[in-house]
Every structure is written in structure tokens, then in C-alpha cells.
């Protein structure tokens, strides 16, 4: 194995702390069934799905510059795939969630071919139109309840686990595992060669192109990957809800507006942003839930304040001021220490 004078290191002091904290949090969360009540588990599972959705949207809009307001197309697609596979083809719900991923990626191919012809605001509107088309199509499927929707049959739900409590544990762990997998996959992607290209595209598309990066191809790949992840999370969300209808499945408010809010206040174009954003979003939601529609106004006010005072989001503000990164993504040039070279002689 040949090794040069120099090598690159990803980890920094702050990222070592970050990874340790994230690892510890993951363990605490994995043990939640032993310390939390039903309400807590349900809330946490919902939080996980939003972390995953926002992280995927961040990859799409924050890194690849594809500002989609139509990711509800894939959330709904995943949800409907779950119900179709379970009800019509007798597939186990968990298997259905895993199948929803690849189908989501496949569906993303023709959608991308169509909407990639559009730029900027037209692209955004195009994605929304696609999601609306999906909604209308879903409402035409009478076997899945047409416009009024359908519930997951009680027999299927009961068959998932021996008791209600175990089933709730199972869905909770599933949500944690899937979100962990989505985040892990995003980190792995960003640390890879593709991630280097993607980060360059995030910072400057023209320069990326002029330096040999096939921008269109990378965007296409990212669109497919987010289609994969979003459909899977969509299936999970509706396994937790146990009921689906075109309006809830393809809701621009739930699956796009909130997700954009989360990503923007947390810090777009940074992997930590959506996690911070989701925490803030749910804290606000829990604190303001009793205020009725005033709660949405307050959310809007928070969004405006953050956008004015910290246009790069809360994590963006922190990261730029202190140079922190919670996850080891950046490459730091270091002189390769001679003694640690593989096969190196002292």
C-alpha cells in the first residue's frame, strides 16, 4: 500500500465530541421503551420521521440546489405503497416499507427526467404539480378507498406483534432504525467522492462544472436517493398512523412546509441543521399547542426572526462562529505521521 506525504483527516475536536454525543443519544433513545410512556414513544417516533424527512430535503435543496416543494409526492407514494402491498398483496408491513424505497427511487427517474427541464422557481412549482397529480391518481384507486382513504386492516395490525405494547415498541424501534439508517447513509454519501462533488455544487454550481463535475448527473442521483429515502419514511409514517387518505398522504403542509421550516431554521446545507431544526420545531409545537391557530402565526414569526438574524440557520450561526462540525465531514490536510504509516519501518 502506497501512502503519500500527506493525508486528509475528517475528525476534529468538535466532531469527536459530536459523534460521542450522537452515539450516546442513540443508545438512550434505543432504550426509550424502558424509560418512556406510550405518549413519549409516539412523540419521539414522530420526531424521528421529521428528522429523516428534513435531512433528505436538506440533501436535495441544501446540497444539490434542487428546491423541491413536492417531496410529499414521495411521502404519499410510500404511504400508498405500504397500504397497496399490505392489503392487496399480503406483504408484511415491514417488508412493504423496505420495498417502498426502491420503488420510490424508480418513480423518481421519470419524474426527474420531466422536471429537470425546469429551473429555479419553475422547478419548485413543477415538483408541486407532480405531487398534486400523484394525489389525484391516488384518489382514483377505489381498492384503496379512493378519495376518502382507508385504514390498515385490524388483522394485519394485530398480526405484527403478540401484544399492543410490543407492536408499539416495534414501530418505535423501526422509526429509530430507519432514521438512523437515513442519517448514516447521508453522512456516508457526504464523506464519499460524490459528497465532495455535492458540497462543491452546494457552494458554487458554475465553479463545480468548470472543475470537471458533472452537475446534472449528481443532481439526478441525489433526486433518486431522496426519492428512495422519502418513500420509505412515508411508508413508515403511515404504518404509525394506520390510516391513509390522499389529502393526508400528499399534504404539502405536513410533508413540505414544516420540513422546509425545520431545515431553514436549523441550517440549510449543513447536516446538523435538520436535527437542530426538528428539536426547535417540536419544542415550539409542544409549547404552543394550546394556542390554536395562533401557534402557526408564532411559528411564522420564529421563521422570520431566524431568517433575518441567522440566515444560515441556528446551526449555521454556531458553526461559523466557533468553527464547529458535529459530524466529521470536512477534509483537513495533515502531514502523514511517519510512525503510523502501514508497513512503515521505524
Amino acid at each position: 500500500m502506497s501512502q503519500g506525504k500527506y493525508q486528509a483527516e475528517h475528525a476534529t475536536h468538535s466532531s469527536r465530541i459530536g459523534v460521542t454525543l450522537i452515539g450516546a443519544t442513540f443508545v438512550v433513545l434505543a432504550l426509550a421503551p424502558f424509560w418512556g410512556d406510550r405518549q413519549t414513544l409516539r412523540l419521539l417516533a414522530e420526531i424521528f420521521t421529521f428528522v429523516a424527512l428534513a435531512s433528505l430535503w436538506n440533501l436535495l435543496a441544501g446540497y444539490a440546489g434542487l428546491v423541491s416543494v413536492g417531496q410529499q409526492a414521495f411521502v404519499g407514494l410510500g404511504g400508498y405503497l405500504l397500504f397497496a402491498l399490505v392489503i392487496l398483496l399480503d406483504v408484511h408491513p415491514i417488508a412493504a416499507i423496505l420495498i417502498a424505497g426502491p420503488i420510490g427511487a424508480l418513480v423518481a427517474v421519470p419524474v426527474a427526467t420531466l422536471i429537470f427541464r425546469l429551473r429555479g422557481a419553475y422547478f419548485a412549482i413543477g415538483t408541486w404539480v407532480v405531487a398534486e397529480v400523484f394525489r389525484l391518481l391516488a384518489s382514483q384507486i377505489s381498492a384503496l378507498g379512493g378519495g376518502s382513504g382507508i385504514s390498515l386492516p385490524a388483522a394485519v395490525v394485530i398480526a405484527m406483534a403478540p401484544s399492543r405494547q410490543l407492536r408499539e415498541f416495534e414501530t418505535y424501534w423501526l422509526a429509530l432504525a430507519l432514521t438512523g439508517a437515513v442519517l448514516g447513509a447521508i453522512v456516508a454519501l457526504l464523506r464519499s467522492r460524490h459528497g465532495l462533488a455535492l458540497t462543491a455544487i452546494r457552494d458554487n454550481e458554475v465553479a463545480a462544472q468548470s472543475n470537471g463535475i458533472d452537475v446534472t448527473r449528481i443532481k439526478f442521483i441525489v433526486y433518486m436517493l431522496t426519492g428512495f429515502g422519502t418513500a420509505m419514511i412515508g411508508a413508515l409514517i403511515f404504518l404509525m398512523k394506520l390510516r391513509i387518505s390522499p389529502d393526508t398522504a400528499f399534504s404539502v403542509n405536513d410533508w413540505t412546509a414544516f420540513v422546509i421550516f425545520i431545515t431553514v431554521i436549523g441550517g440549510i446545507g449543513r447536516i446538523e441543521g435538520p436535527i437542530i431544526g426538528t428539536i426547535v420545531f417540536f419544542m415550539l409545537r409542544q409549547a404552543l399547542a394550546d394556542l390554536g391557530s395562533l401557534y402557526l402565526l408564532m411559528m411564522g414569526a420564529v421563521a422570520i426572526v431566524v431568517m433575518l438574524w441567522a440566515p444560515k440557520g441556528l446551526w449555521g450561526l454556531i458553526a461559523e462562529r466557533f468553527g464547529w462540525q458535529a459530524l466529521p465531514l470536512q477534509r483537513y490536510l495533515v502531514l502523514a505521521p511517519k510512525t503510523e504509516q502501514p508497513g512503515g519501518k521505524p
Binding site: 462533488a197 452546494r202 470537471g212 463535475i213
Partner: peptide
């Protein structure tokens, strides 16, 4: 037109690796 969020080193690595 730097890749402003990346390190100086990463900027040149991008160009060298992809070109």
C-alpha cells in the same frame, strides 16, 4: 468563485480529483 463552505485544501482536491 471559491467553494466557500469548503476548506482551501478541499477546493483544490475537488478540481484535481474530478478533472
Amino acid at each position: 468563485q471559491p467553494f466557500s463552505g469548503m476548506t482551501v485544501f478541499e477546493n483544490v482536491v475537488v478540481a484535481a480529483a474530478f478533472a
